[in-house]
Design a protein around this nucleic acid. Structure first.
Lengths: 194, 194
DNA sequence: CCTACCGATCGGTAGG
DNA sequence: CCTACCGATCGGTAGG
């Protein structure tokens, strides 16, 4: 494929991630995406060959965006507490930022596909699993007594804030999450059970 | 409308709640619902008159089911700690039970409609808000130092377990949530910050 | 409740 | 990359 073709494909996928974050991966229709890109349906379709390939490529693009915005910057900090702090802060910032329209991508698509076996669900599952594994590993490195429990709570509190923010527009949702998470991080540092 | 008509309508809505829990309120199509009820599309359609009315009636039926299974039984316990314990236990049981196919209804539909202004989103929002208000009120009655914070955490941890269970099939998700919630309930009882 | 239909849109294909 | 299609399905209507 030509470089121009690849650039077009990347541009399509950027738009697809934002659209799927709002409308879901089924609501992401080829006709609508083509209209927004100002190209023909078939022109866009030929970049992927099937709806499912578009969905898989969109999941992949969303994962790359998440790694770029959250994971990679946190990995620049030393392992243990500084990195865990950075992961939590960057994750909450990522969810909170209006600029980043993909904030709800994982929450939205995970709920949409959790009952639909197939390659798309597997891709979503793998991406979420990798994130939870990273959170667990850094919780362990930071000295949390039960890293898996700790990672579960961090993830649940952040996603809980995200849903409240999206559904009610309550900006205090992230205050609630930050308060809860700060308390657990402090307890982990002091050796208490969080 | 005749009693038979009402019975048919209720039967349709029971099926609609289960279908929407799995496929979302947009995936809940009139044609598919009619096929599952073994009636014609137009016969089913006439019970509601518009897709949005079907969606609103489905949200209402899901709310009634949730009140029946979780809220009403908990309200039989005395206010304060016993009622808060019952709310948490019944909520987690409700999410965990495979029998109750509507377990994911609120998680699924809230994410689906959080970006779609309209009557359906408002109905979902009202139902979730009523549940959060009840959790907050009983957290206050149970002596939690910050009832709103407490209710937020309970809700987030339960929904976090639900998503992990649905996406990964991990039964331990509810063990993680029960552990986290028990710790907070214990701290609330002792007057500590949870 | 039914059959028979409407225009719009879906994913996808043919041919250029 | 395009125009011009395909059959299937969508929400909804006419008429009984």
């Amino acid at each position: 494929m030509s470089t121009a073709g690849l650039r077009t494909r990347d541009a399509i996928l950027e738009r697809a991630v934002d659209l799927a974050s709002a409308e879901g991966l089924e609501g992401l229709t080829i006709g609508r995406l083509a209209a927004e890109m100002e190209m023909s349906k078939s022109g866009l379709f030929r970049h992927f060959g099937a709806k499912e390939e578009l969905q898989l490529a969109t999941v992949d693009a969303a994962a790359r965006r998440f790694v770029e915005g959250v994971v990679a910057p946190a990995l620049e900090r030393e392992p243990g507490r500084p990195r865990l702090d950075a992961l939590c802060e960057l994750y909450l910032d990522h969810l909170e930022s209006q600029v980043f329209a993909g904030g709800c991508f994982w929450g939205a698509t995970a709920h949409e596909f959790d009952d639909r076996p197939g390659a798309v669900r597997d891709a979503i599952r793998d991406a979420v699993a990798a994130w939870l594994a990273l959170l667990t590993e850094e919780s362990r490195n930071a000295g949390a007594p039960d890293p898996e429990q700790f990672a579960f709570e961090l993830q649940a509190l952040a996603q809980g804030a995200n849903l409240r923010y999206r559904l009610f527009g309550e900006e205090k949702a992230f205050v609630l999450a930050r308060t809860a998470i700060a308390r657990r991080l402090a307890a982990a540092g002091s050796g208490d059970r969080a």
